[in-house]
C-alpha cells in the first residue's frame, strides 16, 4: 500500500479512536475523581394511609452526556432521559408503605455514555 495513503489512514484512524475512547475515559475519570458526580437522592413523604410518595432526584455533574438514564427500584423503572453537566431531574412515584424498607437493598441504574457505551450499575447494600 502507498506509504502516504497508509499514513493518512493511520492518522484518521487515530483521530477516530481518540474520539471514540475519550468519552468513556472522561466518564470514568470524572467518577473516580468525584464519586458524587452521579448522585441519586430519594425523599419519601406520606401520600395516604397505605402509600407514600417517593421523590427520586438524579444529579449529574460529569463532563460527558449520559443518554437514556433509567433507575429501577423495586422492579419499577423510572426514566430520566438524557443528562448533561449540571442536570437535576426529579420523578415522583407512589409506593406501598411496606415497600419502603426494601428500597435501599437493591436498585439499579442504567444509561449509555454518549449513546455508545451501555453501562449498568447494580447497587446492593446490607450484603457483602
Amino acid at each position: 500500500m502507498n506509504t502516504l495513503l497508509k499514513l493518512c489512514i493511520g492518522l484518521v484512524g487515530l483521530i477516530v479512536l481518540y474520539g471514540l475512547a475519550a468519552p468513556m475515559v472522561f466518564f470514568v475519570a470524572d467518577l473516580v475523581r468525584h464519586p458524587g458526580a452521579l448522585r441519586v437522592e430519594m425523599v419519601a413523604a406520606r401520600f395516604n394511609e397505605s402509600h407514600v410518595k417517593l421523590v427520586v432526584t438524579v444529579y449529574y455533574n460529569g463532563s460527558v452526556e449520559l443518554k437514556d438514564v433509567k433507575l429501577t427500584v423495586l422492579e419499577r423503572d423510572i426514566y430520566f432521559g438524557d443528562l448533561i453537566k449540571g442536570s437535576e431531574v426529579s420523578k415522583v412515584i407512589t409506593l406501598p408503605i411496606s415497600a419502603l424498607k426494601e428500597i435501599g437493598k437493591e436498585m439499579s441504574v442504567s444509561f449509555s455514555v454518549v449513546g455508545l457505551y451501555p453501562v449498568e450499575l447494580k447497587i446492593r447494600s446490607g450484603t457483602q
Binding site: K6, I9, G10, G13, L14, V16, L17, L20, A21, M24, L116, Y117, P118, V119, E120, L121, K122, I123, R124, S125, T127, Q128
Partner: peptide, 24 residues
C-alpha cells in the same frame, strides 16, 4: 459501604481498535 456491580459494554471501541489494526 455499598457494593456496586457494574457492567460496561465497550465493544464499539474494541471493534474500532481491531478494524484500525487490521488496516494498519
Amino acid at each position: 459501604g455499598v457494593q456496586i456491580d457494574f457492567r460496561i459494554d465497550i465493544s464499539v471501541l474494541l471493534y474500532a481498535i481491531l478494524l484500525f489494526s487490521m488496516l494498519m
